[in-house]
Design a protein around this nucleic acid. Sequence first.
DNA 1: AGCTGTGACTGGTCAGACCAGTGGACTAGG
DNA 2: CCTAGTCCACTGGTCTGACCAGTCACAGCT
Lengths: 252, 252
Amino acid sequence: MTKTPQFEPVQPIRAYQRIVEQVEDQLARGELTPGQRLPSERELVSQFAVSRSTVREALRVLESNGVVRSRAGDPNGPEVLPFSQVALRKQLVRLARVDELTLSELIGFRMIMDGAAIQVASRLRTPEQLDELEATLVAMRDAIDVDFDAFSQADLAFHELIARISRNTLIQTCNEVVRGVVLGLISDKIAHAPNSRSLMLESLHHHAEVVDAIRDGNGHAAARIARQNMYDYYAGYVPESDQETLQALIED
Amino acid sequence: MTKTPQFEPVQPIRAYQRIVEQVEDQLARGELTPGQRLPSERELVSQFAVSRSTVREALRVLESNGVVRSRAGDPNGPEVLPFSQVALRKQLVRLARVDELTLSELIGFRMIMDGAAIQVASRLRTPEQLDELEATLVAMRDAIDVDFDAFSQADLAFHELIARISRNTLIQTCNEVVRGVVLGLISDKIAHAPNSRSLMLESLHHHAEVVDAIRDGNGHAAARIARQNMYDYYAGYVPESDQETLQALIED
DNA sequence: AGCTGTGACTGGTCAGACCAGTGGACTAGG
DNA sequence: CCTAGTCCACTGGTCTGACCAGTCACAGCT
């Protein structure tokens, strides 16, 4: 079976795209690191041998991707930014808004990631980290008396700590991003729920159970409790048809 | 406790940003749907009452976010694209490249996601989908005789099917992206490994075991085998110090 | 009817201009 | 000598107007 010669449709590469590529490549190779500055637009014009509008279009793309930031008048030129989750979150929010991504998918994702992180953390945690975990519990209890925002913040601290202990920043990042998206979708409903306080108390209780299981080194149980907790916390906001799918995630 | 008045730093909103917002808002409200066309750049110039360069910068941002696509000469104007995850994937790839994720983090992530997807899939799969899974196994076996690329492709098909059965496109997307990054990092080493063929055979064997467990509805076992498989497959490429962390992921 | 050539549009790029903002250098005051 | 204030060169943001190459719809030919 001989292959007939195959040609792919040739598509024009725009000048500004090649500029974007060059910058991103330098960034990937480490020749460009966060904090560094790009030459000024006019300087780039001569370096790339294109017009200023082309340079600017490239910069706009890079900027919208969170790679650089331009500030009017800054004599040092555009700044190369450290990676941030905002661009990632932006894309997730976009998908979620158009129902390409359902709330239950997001929550399911979190149940998995958070559970796994807790499971690993329970195996790798040091005694000091266990103390830290218990400190976050205290912070959560205190935050209940303030407002939902404060509680949410304390909850975030807890999960950040878990992720750090589990030594996997990818899990941590994904968790935070998805968490932000979920909260953005339903935080108003939660905050205005009549039983907001009891929900927070229950959540705190579950977190304490998780920490207990971690202390015992029972990662299996800790993860299960965490998933159950998250399910209880959010299940009311997802359609019934999806609840079954999420329940399948709880069990081990 | 009264709150002192808090002010946030005011940052200039660029003209092109407001254009982007307007377009995205119309899209979120459904007044603009995929397949529709935007007015031509010159028409947008008069509608937004800005210069063409400003309109173009806005279009470049929208284009890099996967919202629209401009084609030179198209009299119908820029096309509004259907929502896709390519932009999300782009950000994830960037995260993986920039954030200096270690290979073990990536693999750990995949062990978790793939295991979870398999677990859910074993609960939700229909008999027809089970047949499909077994078909992918046959395809994998056939691919072994071709080359590593073909096998890799068949493996991808397997995991894609799993993700579809588990009804969570977010898991699927993350899985694919991370898989791509991992393969990009070490595919050459695998392909040139002296025992490449035996590795593929072993991988196939493990996949078959997974399908067996799924058939029995034993999601727990299926997930464990999957994680074990992935660990065996990749463990040789991660530093010994990280292997322990990954091993912690295998157990339940 | 089917094909073809044409032309009025499109987007891609360029050149040059103006303005408001920034920050470092310079200067006046301690 | 050090600090506080001024200033200006340069920045990015935006505008105008121009040219080219690509695309598509349509008129006119076969």
